[in-house]
């Protein structure tokens, strides 16, 4: 079933929308949740929560692409769960990602400024779009999907060492980019 038809089902308040979403994107969501939480049971719960939140947000939303929509919902919920579980310590793949990114993205723990947040998100989008296609995909794969180095390297037919260097260089570019944009990094 096409995304448009599934979204139509949500708008018609048909529960078949959830069944179709699960059929088409269930594994995709489980992948995202599992990469962040590293736990099967937690991942399954988050995926179910993802369907519920999607149900509650369409309408009023009407996403043209359902895949990134449910993926984003799932990722947010997974990060919420991760935060709740690891309030005292950092670990797993997310901990590694945070360590990698902490040097190049401003820490806004002192208080969320909506304007700055919007500006940062806009800048991050522009940065990823400025990258060569393959590099951009790898960057998103690593830092949005939390995919492991070994997994990405295999999928992109690269040596892990080469991939690590590529990501390091990309993070440096990001730091430089954000600095030029006026962010305090």
């Amino acid at each position: 079933m096409e995304d448009e038809q599934i979204v139509d089902l949500y708008w018609a308040r048909s529960e078949a929308a959830i069944a179709e979403t699960e059929k088409k994107y269930g594994r995709y969501c489980r992948y995202i949740a599992f990469r962040i939480l590293q736990n099967d049971e937690d991942a399954k719960e988050i995926v179910n929560d993802t369907y519920l939140k999607t149900w509650n947000t369409i309408p009023p939303n009407r996403p043209d692409q359902l895949k990134p929509y449910v993926g984003t919902v799932c990722r947010q919920l997974s990060l919420n769960r991760y935060e709740a579980q690891t309030a005292q310590k950092r670990g797993g793949e997310v901990g590694v990602l945070l360590a990698e990114l902490s040097e190049c993205i401003p820490d806004r723990s002192g208080g969320a400024d909506i304007g700055e947040s919007v500006a940062l998100r806009d800048a991050l989008n522009r940065f990823v779009r400025s990258l060569p296609d393959k590099t951009g995909r790898i960057f998103v794969r690593r830092y949005w999907y939390a995919s492991s180095i070994s997994e990405i390297a295999k999928e992109y037919a690269m040596k892990e060492s080469s991939l690590t260097v590529l990501l390091l260089r990309t993070r440096r570019k990001l730091k430089e980019f954000l600095s030029k944009e006026g962010f305090d990094v």
Binding site: R75, L98, L101, I105, D107, S109, A112, R121, N125, V128
Partner: peptide
Amino acid sequence: TGENILRDLGGL
């Protein structure tokens, strides 16, 4: 609260 970093990336 480093998750902010990942949440910012969530806005891609």
